[in-house]
Write a protein that binds this DNA or RNA. Structure first.
Lengths: 223, 223
DNA sequence: TGATTTTTATACTATCTCGCATAATATAAA
DNA sequence: TTTATATTATGCGAGATAGTATAAAAATCA
């Protein structure tokens, strides 16, 4: 899992100024792939099979990029895995952030958050994918300190978001005086984790929703 | 992952009658390994690195058995993985069953169950191992129908045990009238899952215990 | 002793794996 | 055009990997 540094120039449009300007054409042979869609394909593969069981040939086939192009664009397998994970996190965050920040009643917010989570975990044609963070934590990739840091960050970020949710709800009087936002936040994360794992094992959505609904009930009426 | 059937004669002591009789000696060259301890070593390896990242050479080195002996004793890699998982489940069940069946107050029982779970998840010299069921669910091995069935069974078994716990506690008046054993059981499993995953990412025991204690509080005073 | 049985030890094969070297290709600039 | 640049395409090479074939070793039985 440890590789040479290898500066992997993250490709950026050279002119951020010209908006829809006639694309200030790069110098050499044009790329035959779109970095964004290629990364999405790689992410999907890693989510399906995990780090170790996903080969560069698989990635090459899925992205349509041959191996040297993969290396040029994303670096080695480990770097590609990390970039995929970052992409996953960015997507998930983008999908949830507005709900976390909304001023809806706590129950509505939780319900919507879990609905989004289930959409993410259950997506994938060839079976549900689960949660990348949970997958990564469970894989041998977690032996890598950088990756473990990302996983821990993921936990902390989700915990914090839920805790803030409950704190605000409590301030607004939606929860009882004795409710502990910290404890409830961890329970909310635990519920995310349990449905992520179960989704991966192909537990049907109905059952997952029942688990989520029950958890919301307990959390929102907790003394 | 699909292999030829290959009858893997599970070796059994031929005479179950004679208790400490001079070991009715097998015919040929004696085995140089103890199947039980070899399986324990294999289990530890699979727990550390998962299915795909554990090679037969690793297993051979860890068990002290050369490859042909491994095949003779346990079958191919997939079969060894399955036998390791069964062993893990048997051990975990054995460690918890008496507590689940005990007549202690619900809080004590939960506390002891979680303590046992943390012992299992945090064991391992080279870092905590987490929960095999969660690891397997998250791995590509879950694509194997037989393995997925085992994972689902694992979830159901734990859910049931917790649900029964809460049902009995409710009957004994330890929980409020409105407490829902099913929902609480799923929350208890969720707590197991969240600490299993976090343990794997090396969250320290103190933090895991705090999460567990908070969860117990909420579950046992749930309206 | 010698034959039989069971396991171990060695080594082999065919395949996959990652990463990279080299050459071909397609564009912009001169 | 020619040159410079950036990407694609092909394929090599060292090493890992799963599984097996064959021979050696260590025991029991006759």
């Amino acid at each position: 899992m440890v590789q040479k540094p290898k500066k992997t120039s993250t490709i950026k449009a050279p002119s951020a100024t010209s908006d829809a300007a006639a694309a200030p054409r790069r110098r050499g042979r044009p790329r035959a792939y779109e970095p964004d869609v290629a990364l999405a394909k790689a992410l999907d593969l890693f989510r399906k099979d995990g780090f170790a069981a996903t080969s560069l040939d698989d990635l090459s086939a899925a992205t349509g990029m041959n191996r040297p192009s993969l290396y040029g664009a994303f670096g080695d397998k480990r770097e590609l895995y990390i970039k995929s994970y970052q992409r996953y996190r960015d997507d998930a965050r983008a999908a949830m952030i507005s709900v976390f920040r909304s001023e809806e009643p706590i129950r509505e917010r939780l319900k919507r958050i879990y609905a989004i989570a289930l959409d993410i975990y259950l997506s994938g044609e060839a079976g549900p994918r689960g949660c990348f963070t949970v997958m990564t934590a469970a894989s041998e990739a977690v032996a890598d300190p950088d990756i473990r840091t990302m996983v821990l960050d993921g936990f902390v970020e989700l915990d914090k978001a839920f805790i803030t949710c409950f704190r605000r709800a409590k301030e607004k009087g939606e929860l009882s005086e004795s409710a502990d936002p910290l404890v409830l936040g961890h329970l909310a994360s635990a519920t995310i984790h349990t449905v992520a794992i179960r989704a991966r094992a192909r537990v049907p959505r109905k059952e997952l929703e029942a688990i989520v609904d029950g958890a919301i009930d307990v959390m929102c009426r907790a003394a």
